[in-house]
Design a protein around this nucleic acid. Sequence first.
DNA 1: GTCTATAAGCAGATAGAC
DNA 2: GTCTATCTGCTTATAGAC
Lengths: 211, 211
Amino acid sequence: MEANKPDTATRILDVAERLFVEHGFEATSLRMITQQAEVNLAAVNYHFGSKDALFESVFMRRIGPFVAACLAELDAAEQSGEALSAEALVRSFVRPCLALSKDPARGGALFVRLMSRTLVENHRLLREALSQQYSVFVQRYTAAFQRALPQFAAEDIAWRMHFAFTVMFNAFAGNDVLKIFGRSQVVNARDPELIVKHLIPFVVAGLSAPI
Amino acid sequence: MEANKPDTATRILDVAERLFVEHGFEATSLRMITQQAEVNLAAVNYHFGSKDALFESVFMRRIGPFVAACLAELDAAEQSGEALSAEALVRSFVRPCLALSKDPARGGALFVRLMSRTLVENHRLLREALSQQYSVFVQRYTAAFQRALPQFAAEDIAWRMHFAFTVMFNAFAGNDVLKIFGRSQVVNARDPELIVKHLIPFVVAGLSAPI
DNA sequence: GTCTATAAGCAGATAGAC
DNA sequence: GTCTATCTGCTTATAGAC
């Protein structure tokens, strides 16, 4: 537990997390990772077995605590006894995202970007691993939204959750899709507080819109 | 103009477009492309110069007509004389997306996915090329939304457009972010008509929500 | 656990015959 | 324009000394 230098495996995970986000999985070589982590090239295969397994380790280190935090928020909201509103549910997801974004020790905004990027890329390494393990996440939110929006059919709720989580994941990922098209008025898409302030009204309105 | 076999350059573009969408740029090798296109490996460098230049060619072949179609819709809507609604503006973007999705001759849903993926990945090869050339796209939509939603400040409009275009691009890209988390109730995120039906109310409500 | 050295293969790109 | 053959460099992964 030295303050200054984490152990070899942790240094590899930290650097790999950053490089996978910046350049993507395929464009990141083990040589880039081990050089920046100041460890030997062979250390990756010793500690993780392969590049694929390293990616899984990078992801799994963070996703468990994050999903647990979301479910804890949901539990707290449901145990309050009041009828859940769509806004309360959105906030129960946004709050852990915001907390994560601001906590570098748990991956910070970097991991939120990795999550978003991985979801959008539909990454082969995570399709099975994640979908098996975290279906409870989707099931809980689906049930909660069905109770919060009883006027809508299950299929409509599924579509709206699909759009809502798409925009939330992408919002925290910090990519400005319009910047690439040459916007002059630039939105600061990297300030988590600012994102949340604008994100919540948009998502809640979208979820609650009349059919 | 033989019906059966397009020329070499076109065959390369068609196959590259599909593989770049399926596997991403880095994970797609020139050997994969040339084998599936049934052309010689050296043909890529002869016709396009490099792998990077091939990617640009794949993208540029489609993006020009697509942006032109969006601007034409915008022109038509504005020349109708009526005050533009947010919904009319959303439809002016969704209609070309839908038309493109259903027209394989112009890239079909495949190119919409390539657009979305490229935007989310913030691809190095397109940051400059696109942002220089298509800033008019963002400027026109920004001005139109500012007139359609005069009650909001320019900064708020910028944020809402950011979210709206994020969800629209991702919707047409056909990735279900919740599926990876193991949803049981699966939305058919690949049927363009169905996407549009659910997408428009969500996006319009998000854009128009009170601050 | 950490290192050096190297295996084995694939990548993009090109020279030069036809 | 199209082909074969090849160059050069980088990739992941591993064997084996320390």
